[in-house]
Simulated assay, not measured.
Amino acid sequence: MSTAPGPHDRGRERDRDEEGRARNQRPRDGLGRPLPYGTDGVARQPEGVVRTPDESVSEAQALLDAGRPFHAHEVFEDAWKTGPDEERGLWKGLAQLAVGLTHSARGNVTGGARLLLRGAGAVSEWSATTGRPRPYGIGVAELAAWASALSTRVTEDTTTPLDAAAEAPRLREDSRR
């Protein structure tokens, strides 16, 4: 039996939260990629925050505008986990759109395009099923069109890096840059 340290044993304890659950506390960049310990990273979104739908949309829009779609995804994930069950499809679809933009900006063209289309389908299906075309002022049809167009662009041009802030969608008409 080998006593050599394994790939995850670096002589330090695992990162854990107050309840003892494993939590990776490595610093991250603006697109959520892990950075080496000791590196200055971007502040992480707190998990499990209960916000009103309007607060969720406003905070996510600010993060998208700042080129931080991974962090916007975290806000949408909180909304889907803490909001009413009948809205889960909306918030999950919005999270998928943000992750699709994240992957596209990281250079994962195939995964990004798939998630953009999956998210667009999810929010469109939720909207059609509920009869709510603009929940909380969110332009579902406009978001689906944005995701479809971006998905096509990133798969056709795999050489030009994607600027997440420049490509951020407008969630609501009143969202200003």
Results as ranks from 00 to 15, higher is better:
residue 2 S to L: 08
residue 5 P to W: 11
residue 8 H to C: 07
residue 10 R to G: 04
residue 12 R to G: 08
residue 15 D to E: 04
residue 18 E to N: 12
residue 21 R to Q: 13
residue 22 A to Y: 14
residue 22 A to D: 10
residue 23 R to K: 02
residue 24 N to Y: 05
residue 25 Q to K: 12
residue 28 R to S: 00
residue 28 R to C: 03
residue 31 L to H: 00
residue 35 L to M: 09
residue 41 G to P: 00
residue 41 G to T: 06
residue 43 A to Q: 08
residue 44 R to V: 10
residue 44 R to F: 03
residue 46 P to R: 15
residue 48 G to Q: 05
residue 50 V to W: 12
residue 54 D to H: 08
residue 55 E to P: 00
residue 55 E to Q: 14
residue 59 E to W: 05
residue 59 E to L: 15
residue 60 A to D: 03
residue 61 Q to G: 04
residue 64 L to I: 11
residue 64 L to Y: 11
residue 69 P to H: 04
residue 71 H to W: 06
residue 71 H to Y: 08
residue 72 A to E: 07
residue 74 E to L: 13
residue 78 D to N: 02
residue 81 K to P: 08
residue 91 W to H: 03
residue 92 K to F: 10
residue 96 Q to P: 00
residue 98 A to Q: 03
residue 100 G to N: 11
residue 102 T to N: 09
residue 108 N to T: 04
residue 110 T to M: 04
residue 110 T to G: 05
residue 110 T to W: 11
residue 112 G to H: 06
residue 117 L to C: 07
residue 117 L to T: 09
residue 117 L to E: 14
residue 123 V to D: 00
residue 125 E to F: 11
residue 128 A to Y: 13
residue 129 T to A: 15
residue 129 T to S: 14
residue 131 G to H: 02
residue 132 R to I: 09
residue 132 R to F: 04
residue 134 R to Y: 10
residue 135 P to D: 11
residue 137 G to A: 07
residue 139 G to C: 04
residue 142 E to M: 05
residue 143 L to F: 05
residue 146 W to H: 08
residue 148 S to I: 06
residue 148 S to R: 15
residue 149 A to F: 01
residue 150 L to H: 02
residue 154 V to F: 14
residue 157 D to Y: 12
residue 158 T to W: 05
residue 159 T to H: 13
residue 161 P to C: 14
residue 164 A to T: 07
residue 165 A to N: 02
residue 166 A to G: 03
residue 167 E to W: 10
residue 168 A to S: 07
residue 169 P to M: 05
residue 173 E to R: 15
residue 177 R to V: 14
residue 177 R to Q: 14
